[in-house]
Computed example of a mutant assay.
Amino acid sequence: MLYTPDQTAQLPAEGFRYLLTSLNDHVLTITLNRPEKKNALNPPMLAELAFALAYAHHASDVWLVVLAAAGDTFCTGMDLKSLLVGDDETASIPEPAGPVRLGELMAGLHKPSIARVQGPVYAGGFLLVATSTYVVAAESATFSLPEVKRGLFPFQVLAVLLNIMPARTALDLCLRAKTLQASEALMLGLVTDIAPVDALHDVVNGLLNELKQFSPIAMQFGLRAYQQQKDLPPSEQQAFLHNQFTQLQQTHDAKEGMAAFLEKRQPKWSGS
């Protein structure tokens, strides 16, 4: 993470410039709030996203994360104007410790995340969608990688797409700048659920309520192990995963879950 636990002990009291955040019943909702620019990602907005995701990662009271967007477009990716002429805007938060790479930040979140996609997703916006645990998209949402039309290539997006679809399919999306309808994105695994746009909130809430029934610490262990075992040779993966299971057994939630099962009652999760 690009921010320490001390730096992100709390969200900015005055709020962010380009994000809206709310924490309710262990769910942190992060809303991209630059609708006049179709939520294009400029450096200050990227820093705010890094800060908010670091807060979500470190805060024990955050069990689940929802990524949403204001306006009619989810995200158009990087702000090309800021790439060409730079951005001298005064930051609203401390400078991150390094370059902001959304794919890495989302992978390091280690908490279930849901992207609530109400409108089109372009270019670098895929980094938020393809790395979320779940993606609930409006039936009218579309998904496109137009970089080759601008003389660019979505290198980082390709890397995250390769985790969820065959290589030829991912390459084709990047090379031909095709526009996917939500139903096509669902078939490819980029989207996990589709719904009418006016039902998105209810579908996401239903998924959140289901996830809240389960141990948050168990899900965090599982998501962290999923990322970490990728870097291990096959000969070391099973030993690593066995060790993770042993550590998880020592947590309060694991002991509570097993006790609740034996006592035939609902568990009371603490997230510890």
Rank of each mutant, 00 (worst) to 15 (best):
L180E: 09
I30N: 02
D6V: 08
V100T: 10
P35H: 04
R150W: 14
G98H: 11
Y18H: 14
E184G: 06
H110W: 13
A52F: 05
L105C: 13
M1F: 07
K149S: 07
A40L: 01
F126H: 12
L190W: 06
L127K: 04
P112E: 05
Q220K: 12
E14M: 08
L173E: 09
D72C: 10
S183E: 12
A185P: 07
D61H: 12
P5L: 04
H201A: 13
L84E: 14
L102M: 15
M258L: 13
L11S: 07
G119H: 06
M165R: 10
L161H: 06
D25E: 14
G257V: 00
V204L: 10
L241P: 01
H110P: 03
T8Y: 07
D193W: 06
V121P: 08
G271Y: 03
V160A: 10
K230P: 04
G124C: 05
E184R: 12
I114H: 09
A69L: 01
H26N: 15
P146A: 05
S22P: 03
L83G: 02
P234K: 10
L49W: 05
H252P: 00
Y134G: 02
L241Y: 00
F245A: 15
A40V: 02
N39S: 02
Q156V: 01
L127S: 10
L171N: 11
G86L: 04
L32K: 02
L171I: 03
N243P: 00
P166Q: 09
L105I: 14
P99W: 11
S215V: 00
T131I: 06
K268H: 14
L23K: 01
L11E: 07
R34Q: 10
L83Y: 12
E36Y: 01
D61S: 13
R101V: 15
T251M: 00
E95N: 11
L64C: 04
Q118A: 14
L46D: 00
Q181L: 12
Q250N: 10
W269S: 03
D172F: 04
V27P: 02
A68Q: 08
L248M: 11
G271Q: 06
K230C: 11
S92M: 07
Q7N: 04
I217R: 08
H57D: 01
A260W: 00
A137K: 11
P43R: 03
G125I: 06
Q10K: 06
C75T: 06
E139F: 02
P94I: 07
A195D: 03
V135K: 09
F240E: 01
I30G: 01
F240M: 00
L175F: 14
G271E: 08
A56L: 10
L158C: 13
P196M: 10
Q244W: 00
Q181C: 10
P44L: 10
D193Y: 11
T4A: 10
L84N: 12
G108I: 07
D172P: 02
V117F: 06
D202R: 12
M258F: 08
Q266E: 12
I194F: 03
T131M: 08
S82M: 06
P233Y: 01
F51H: 09
D61P: 02
N209Q: 15
A70G: 06
Q228Y: 03
T73V: 15
N209D: 15
Y122T: 05
G15C: 05
A177S: 15
M106E: 09
T4Q: 09
Q227T: 07
V160C: 10
L190S: 06
A137R: 08
A177V: 09
